[in-house]
Amino acid sequence: MADMTAISIPAEVPRQKAPKPIVPRPIVNVSERHEARVAWMLAAPAMILIVLFIVAPVIAVITLGFTDFELGYSTFKFVGFENYAELFGDRTFRQSLWNTAIYTAIVAPASILLGLGVALLIESETVGRSFFRTAYFLPVASLLVAMATVWQYLLHPTIGPVNSMLAMVGLPGPNWLGSAGTVLYSLSMIGVWQTVGFNMILFLAGLTAIPRDLYSAAEIDGAKSPIDRFFLVTLPMLGPTTVFVTTISIINAVKVFETVKTLTEGGPNKASEVLLFTIYQEGFVYLRVGYASAMTVVFLAVLVVMMFAQYRLVDRKVHY
């Protein structure tokens, strides 16, 4: 299941202030003060926990990024930008960034296009809609670690069904997850398989939200073929959905971890090292918290850049 917590950009709408009735001042103050006090009480637990579990840790991780803190040592010192300098020259980290970029470049577009394609096919079909929807959505509702294990079996070089099938038609099956040349693509394939259904559901919702009248108007205006109507109505009307699906797909691809941890541990020969896995290794296996924190800051920066890109795009392009 995709984690969507990082996506939203609601334009903050300030509450409209009602014109104040002309009442003797003290009364207004009492009731307003009472309302504010109740509001504080209702919001306090959430506020405290946000500070405790989100704000403080983010500040801590940024601070730790400037230290040489390692778990198990009681002392640490500030080292300025040393960690970032080291990151720059770290072959593993550079490989990891590159792999994450490749993975994202494959998984995001493929799962968006397939999701849109499947949604369009299902939307225009009358038979078996709910069956197809279920079939494509099932991977989203399944435990990824478990399904990754199944994929490991399917892609097993000798006893796996995929290679058995290839052998039947006389093709040599590659060592999908075991060779440096194919591992990233195999993981990408699993990633696509896992996310298409999610995008499909969002596109389906986008499609049903398009007013039928627009298609009627398009027909009358002379859009004869379904393709004409697709470009005149469907595609532009899916604009907001597409921007949203794109951001969420990219962010989720950047956060790939489960399949790598379960299937390859970054191997073989770092061919499937990805950002989160590298952070995990450095921070929680080698316990170099300072250094891993610097990596985390880079990771956070990537997310922030994505969000702003979406922000701008929504503001400019798809606003009706």
Binding site: D3, T5, A6, I7, S8, I9, P10, E12, I50, F53, I54, V55, A56, P57, V58, A60, V61, L64, K255, F257, L276, I279, G283, V289, A292, S293, T296, F299, L300, L303, V304, M307
Partner: peptide, 15 residues
């Protein structure tokens, strides 16, 4: 809004 940006992966080290 800030919180929506920050996944558990980013806060896990200090936590």
């Amino acid at each position: 809004m800030l919180g929506l940006l920050v996944p558990i992966h980013a806060t896990s080290l200090p936590l």
